[in-house]
């Protein structure tokens, strides 16, 4: 598969599932990407996804995990700015999985 399909429209992604075109993203597409990642998006997931999109919008870069934890802590407090909390939401790596769902490129330094 090289594209996500919603109602007959297809949206290209790379071999790891990251959207090729940032502007393609919408909430329905996020749900589909999440399903592929075997994640049911809750309000807590959306909080992270939206936070990542805002971070990207501001800085044009997807934050590394360490940076995400710190920035979440500043925005939402210590309980959510916590690596363990983020891993509970996104077991295969918060930066990686949440960025994919948020339609962002793979974080730089995430090899």
């Amino acid at each position: 598969m090289t594209a996500y399909v919603i109602n007959g429209s297809s949206f290209e992604h790379d071999e790891e599932g990251y959207l090729k075109n940032l502007a393609d993203w919408n909430k329905d597409l996020a749900e589909i990407i999440a399903k592929d990642e075997k994640i049911d998006l809750t309000a807590e997931h959306w909080e992270v996804v939206n936070f990542l999109r805002e971070y990207y919008d501001e800085y044009q870069v997807a934050p590394a995990i360490r940076v995400l934890v710190k920035a979440m802590k500043k925005a939402f407090g210590a309980e959510k700015g916590d690596q363990k909390y983020l891993y509970q939401l996104f077991p295969y790596g918060p930066a990686k999985q949440a960025c994919k769902i948020a339609g962002l490129p793979k974080p730089t330094g995430c090899v």
């Binding site: 870069v61 590394a64 940076v67 920035a71």
Partner: peptide, 14 residues
């Protein structure tokens, strides 16, 4: 092309 100028402002986070 990608405007990466705003990314310099994220360096502090790193």
């Amino acid at each position: 092309t990608k405007n990466f100028a705003p990314t310099y402002r994220a360096l502090g986070d790193y």
